[in-house]
Amino acid sequence: MESAALSPALELRQLVKRFGEKVAVDGVSLTIPTGSCYGLVGPNGAGKTTTLSMATGLLRPDHGQALICGVDVWAQPTEAKQLVGVLADGVKLFDRLTGEQLITYNGLLAGLDAETVSRRCADLLDMLELRGAGSTLVVDYSAGMTKKIALACALVHAPRLLVLDEPFESVDPVSAANIRDILQGYVRGGGTVIVSSHSMDLVQRMCDHVAVVAAGRVLAAGSVDEVRGASTLEERFVELVGGRQHLEGPTWLNLS
């Protein structure tokens, strides 16, 4: 097997997932280069969350393989999960813990010693501007604060791959800018980030690679410049996905 150092950060091979008669993911194959910031974009129901769940060990595929730094997620789940940090959209946190307790729990669960966890917890609370909320129960956090504490939990064990499903949803612009700075520093330090987002502008500014997914299939993938061509990423996305209707609305909305 290729050494982890030379392997792609994530490789998806013909992933398939069905829910009853519905095919949510239909043969998705992607290669995410190590050291990249990779955007995964698509309309609602495109299969993005299902794909990322299969890629990170949260949902077993019906067919196909996912490899993190060359390690098979489903054949070697313990080894693979040590390499990845996940901020999953819609997954409940243990919100009856304080922010500090939640980060500590995740660090200990990842096998870190108590002293290392304590030091990293303090660093993460400072970095994400949550120091004042460290002793507050997560259930009392705002939506944006909850996103930030979930990111801290994903980062505490210093993973080689960070998978973020809608990380900027409900986050205020200042916090979002700070999070982008943190992620860019993480990539410069050798990490790899995968971001699922509905914001084409954010992906175009933040990511160097992108994949457009619709109806459980990859429609285009490559560098941002390759995928968007001579247009903006949003224009290219609409062109690939389709479904845009140039409607003026009903006449009763015309107030002039």
Rank of each mutant, 00 (worst) to 15 (best):
G144Y: 08
P159F: 07
G144T: 07
E166C: 02
E169W: 12
R160V: 06
F168P: 05
R180M: 15
D208F: 06
P167N: 01
G189V: 11
L151R: 03
H198V: 05
A110E: 04
T136R: 15
L93Q: 12
A114P: 00
S196I: 10
M206T: 12
C121Q: 12
V174E: 14
D126Q: 12
A177T: 14
F94C: 11
V174N: 13
A88C: 12
A88I: 11
A114F: 03
D123S: 13
L112E: 13
H198N: 00
Y141I: 01
E79W: 03
P167K: 02
A133Y: 04
I149W: 01
A75S: 13
D95R: 02
E129L: 11
G134N: 02
L202E: 06
T136Q: 15
R205Q: 03
T116E: 15
K81R: 15
K148C: 09
D126C: 07
V193F: 07
V171H: 03
R188L: 13
L164G: 06
G85I: 02
L164R: 01
A80H: 00
F94G: 00
G111H: 03
D113K: 01
V210I: 13
S135F: 03
R160C: 00
H157P: 13
E166H: 00
Y105D: 12
G144L: 09
I179N: 05
M206W: 09
P159V: 09
A88H: 03
K148E: 12
R96G: 13
Y105P: 10
G185F: 09
